[in-house]
């Protein structure tokens, strides 16, 4: 192996997620057009754009909740194919938090957090519970472990969902509009949890309209419209000096 090859391999290892030339259709409707995006390990990328622009679809492709039809998606060095083993391996590395929390309503918060570690990773119940309680502590709801999701506020539910994801020890976290379903006064606590996670060095891809969060946490902001990535820039540049007219139009609509 030459030094150059070695070097390129090291660069590859630093790449957490790479989408190249990704196209996706829902039957005849093309929702992603030639999407190219590279997320490096430890990087925090915020994805924004008008509704229907393909933001959610794009991040759902990263853990194969949606199947792309063209292009390559490489996650932690593994290229996504429709092979079950490949999908399972990628999903082990990727955690996801949803707009509607998607906690299991018939299980307690603790059971929500331990189900996957026990059954997917074969962790013993006691150990899984210890890990879960540690993460619940970290998202500041240790006292809610034995409650059912419906007994929690929206913000607490979303933090429980974040803890559930973290229990699988993912290397990359995807957030799909994590605060959009929350009452305004509960948004802060979830964003704080995410900011804390970011400062711990987690690789994060967040679809969100919280521009304050983007400014504070993001390394890069990606703007999408009509299934295409229109513009990618560091937050200061993105907000103060957007290049594309569509980005300007979008920002003028959401920044009051």
């Amino acid at each position: 192996m030459t030094a150059k090859e070695k070097n390129s391999e090291m660069v590859d290892l630093e790449v957490a997620v790479e989408l190249s030339g990704v196209d996706k259709w829902f039957s005849i409707l093309q929702v992603l057009h030639d999407v190219n995006l590279t997320v490096r390990c430890g990087e925090k990328v915020v994805v924004c754009g008008p509704s229907g622009s393909g933001k959610s679809t794009m991040i759902r492709c990263i853990n194969y909740l949606e199947k792309h039809q063209k292009g390559r998606i490489v996650v932690n060095g593994t290229e996504l194919t429709d092979n079950r083993k490949v999908i399972d391996r990628v999903r082990q590395d990727v955690g996801m938090v949803f707009q509607n929390f998607n906690l299991y309503p018939h299980l307690t918060v603790l059971e929500n957090c331990t189900l996957a570690p026990r059954w997917v990773k074969g962790v013993a119940r006691k150990d899984a519970e210890a890990v879960a309680r540690a993460y619940l502590e970290r998202v500041r709801i240790p006292d809610k472990a034995d409650f059912y999701p419906s007994q929690l506020s929206g913000g607490q539910q979303q933090r429980a969902a974040i803890a559930r994801s973290l229990c699988m020890n993912p290397k990359i976290m995807l957030f799909d509009e994590p605060t959009s379903a929350l009452d305004p006064e509960l948004v802060r606590e979830v964003l704080d949890t995410m900011a804390q996670l970011a400062s711990d060095g987690m690789t994060m891809v967040c679809v969100t309209h919280e521009m304050g969060f983007a400014r504070q946490v993001a390394d890069r902001v990606v703007f999408m419209d009509a299934g295409r990535i229109i513009e990618t820039a560091p937050p200061e540049e993105f907000f103060s000096n957007p290049r594309e007219s569509r980005t300007k139009a979008f920002l003028s609509q959401i920044l009051h």
Partner: peptide
């Protein structure tokens, strides 16, 4: 949403 949650956590279909 339940399916999405289970899939993202890596649960098998039967689980």
């Amino acid at each position: 949403g339940m399916h999405d949650a289970s899939a993202s956590l890596g649960l098998k279909r039967w689980q």
